Structure formats: C-alpha cells, structure tokens
Simulated scan of single mutants.
Amino acid sequence: MELVPKVDAVQTYKNVSNFFKDDLEKIVLMSGSRMVDLSSPSFEENYGSSETNGIETKLINGLDAQNVVKSVHDALYHGVDPVSQRILIGLYIKRQRWIDIQPLVYREHTSFAAYRKRALLTFAYSFEGWQIKNHCDKVIRLLAYA
C-alpha cells in the first residue's frame, strides 16, 4: 500500500517556482501585507488589517489571502529545513541571485541546483499541510502527481 502517491518532481518544481514568481506577491498584497514581511521570522499572526478587509479579501477569487500568506510563512519557518529556508527566502522573497545565496548555504555551484530542487519540493509538501492547518478556504495544490 502506497501511503503517499508518487510525485512528479519536475512538474512540482515548476509549480512552486511559478507560485513564488507569479502568484505570491499578488496574494500578499491582497492580504494587506508586504513581501518583505515574509522574510521576517517574527511575522505576527495578527498581521492583517481589519475584519472588514478580511471579508473583502475572502470575496476576491474565493481565496482567503491572509491564511494563505500565513501558510507560506509557516511553511518557510516551520516546515522546511534551514538550508531550504535560506534558498527559498533568498531567491523568491528577497529576489537575490543564485550567486548571492550560494555562500549563505555553503554549497558548491554544482550542488546548489540539487538543494534548490529539494527546497521547492519540501516547500510544496509543507505548504499544503499548513494551508489545511490554517483553514484556508481553497488549498493551493503545488504538488503534481505522476
């Protein structure tokens, strides 16, 4: 019996990368936060604005943007290992170049790509779990199955 279905790693890498590049900033803005807030480990649970804004946010595309942003933060700070965390925050939140992040994780250029792939995959698993835990209206599925 297979407890966890086989993941299409290549498609999952693309899904996570596209989420960070194309969707995350829009969701962060809808939540009333800023991208720089995600790079801080002291991100507060009550980062959103008023209750009215929360209701309006839920109406936009049926997405609970504040809970999604909280889930991204939780996945980054409580769901992935420290090396993956540095890679993801550096590349996708702070928008640094590979060459700038590589010394922070003490990895050779040839192995950095493998660590980046591992970071994308672990984030996908963690993010899905945190969305469920944070009661997101719609779970954004980044994992692709073979």
Rank of each mutant, 00 (worst) to 15 (best):
W130K: 00
L91Q: 06
Q11S: 13
N134D: 02
R86Q: 12
C136D: 03
L104M: 15
M30D: 15
K117V: 04
V80I: 05
W130E: 00
G48F: 14
D137A: 04
L63W: 02
V68T: 05
I101N: 14
V105W: 13
H73N: 06
S39M: 05
S71H: 00
R107D: 14
V72S: 06
A65P: 02
G32Y: 09
G129T: 02
K94P: 01
E128A: 10
I93E: 07
N18D: 15
E2P: 07
K26H: 11
C136I: 01
D81M: 07
R86S: 12
D8T: 04
R107H: 14
V80Y: 09
V139I: 15
R95I: 02
V7F: 14
K6V: 14
N46E: 11
F43M: 05
K14V: 07
M35T: 14
F19I: 03
K14M: 09
I87C: 05
P5Y: 03
Q96I: 07
P82R: 02
L24A: 01
H73Q: 07
Y47P: 00
S17L: 09
C136A: 12
S126F: 03
L24E: 00
V105N: 08
Y13L: 05
K26C: 14
E44D: 08
S50I: 00
R97K: 13
T57I: 06
G129K: 03
M30P: 06
N18I: 04
K58D: 10
S40E: 14
D74G: 03
D23W: 12
Q96K: 15
P103C: 08
F20E: 11
K21D: 14
K6G: 03
A114E: 13
L63V: 03
L121S: 06
Q96W: 09
N61E: 08
I93V: 13
K6Y: 06
A114K: 10
N134C: 02
A144D: 11
S126Y: 06
Y13T: 08
Q131Y: 09
Y77T: 05
V28Y: 06
H135A: 10
F123Q: 00
V4K: 13
S71R: 02
N15D: 06
D37K: 01
K94N: 12
S49Q: 11
P82F: 11
R141C: 05
N15E: 10
V83H: 05
I99W: 00
L29V: 13
I55R: 10
E44Q: 14
E51W: 08
K14R: 08
K21Y: 15
N61R: 07
N134M: 05
A146Q: 13
Q66D: 12
A75P: 04
S31W: 02
Q131I: 05
V7L: 08
G90A: 02
K138Q: 11
P41Y: 12
L76F: 04
D64W: 01
N18L: 15
I89H: 01
Q11C: 04
R116Q: 15
S40Q: 02
V68K: 02
D74Q: 12
Q85S: 08
I87A: 07
T122N: 11
Y92W: 13
